[in-house]
Design a protein around this nucleic acid. Structure first.
Length: 275
DNA sequence: CGTTACCCCTGGAGGC
DNA sequence: TGCCTCCAGGGGTAAC
């Protein structure tokens, strides 16, 4: 569920509550999600202060440095993860796997499918963590342009849609935003990466940036104690043009949206508007 | 090397 | 009501 916008909205929602706050411990109810949760998490975190919350791709990074052995907490929400802030003592519900305990609040991780992750990185330079070291460009960075995409895909024969979802190329674009960005740019999800013009890559980069930014802006207004969500409405707060709309009319040309499968994932697109 | 297939896990929807 | 199948917003790994 969470793609880049949802993670970024969670980051912004957590920031005012957790920055400069001291951790007092952790409660781990489930030994492993995608990976094993650090077994000594409770003692390791006690006394550390959250100095910053960053995002890299779909990872949330809590900077917990200290003069004596601090590090970084890496959080990934997988397909079904969500975070919320609850008062201390709030009884956990099903799939509430981990609590990060602060003096006056609890950050609670819920993840029914357990595809998420909670990792610890010892030391200061979190970019060297194995989960982050091979990640690609940030789509909201200034360096992410149509020209960059064009240059990076000249030897890629794979279809553009799975290419956009490859986090070693560009991070944060999941199944929904890949479909929506391609529709907005008028590019077929089936088109090979090395067969898209520079001009159309510029349209695509702009579409990715604006789609992600609009979703962040829409989500940013609704965050309080409940830090993102199960996004049940689909594309977070925004409505989707094609995702999940097989057979419905394309908003631009009214012809039916087509559903196919690519690399094991569903793809939605308009065969008329997207070439 | 690039690319595909499969796996991890639970829950909801829909068919029978 | 139950049981079955299929599907789901992610990503890591093995195999071709």
């Amino acid at each position: 569920m969470p793609e880049l916008p949802e993670v970024e909205v969670s980051r912004q929602g957590l920031l005012p509550y957790l920055s400069e706050q001291y951790l007092v411990g952790a409660v781990v109810r489930t030994p492993r999600l995608r990976h094993a949760i650090p077994p000594d998490l409770d003692t390791r975190l006690a006394g550390l202060r959250v100095d910053a919350i960053l995002r890299r791709g779909k990872y949330l990074l809590l900077d917990c440095q200290s003069t004596r052995g601090g590090g970084w907490l890496l959080l990934h929400l997988g397909m079904s993860g969500s975070l919320r802030l609850v008062p201390p003592g709030t009884p956990p519900q099903k799939h509430d796997h981990v609590d990060l305990l602060f003096a006056r609040t609890v950050l609670r991780l819920r993840d029914p499918r357990r595809f998420g992750a909670l990792l610890w990185h010892e030391g200061a330079d979190v970019d060297r963590h194995p989960a982050l070291v091979d990640l690609g460009i940030e789509p909201l960075s200034d360096a992410f342009t149509g020209d960059w995409l064009y240059a990076a895909t000249q030897r890629r024969r794979v279809a553009i849609k799975p290419l956009l979802m490859d986090s070693r190329l560009v991070v944060g674009i999941g199944n929904i935003y890949a479909a929506e960005s391609l529709h907005r740019a008028g590019v077929s999800p089936l088109r090979r990466g090395d067969r898209i013009s520079r001009l159309r890559y510029r349209l695509l980069a702009d579409a990715i940036r604006s789609t992600l930014a609009a979703s962040i802006a829409a989500g940013g207004s609704s965050v309080r104690d409940y830090v993102h969500s199960d996004g049940g409405a689909g594309c977070f707060q925004l409505s989707c043009a094609v995702y999940g709309r097989a057979g419905e009319p394309c908003p631009d040309c009214s012809r039916p949206v087509r559903a196919i499968r690519q690399a094991g994932r569903s793809t939605f697109y308009c065969p008329r508007c997207q070439r």
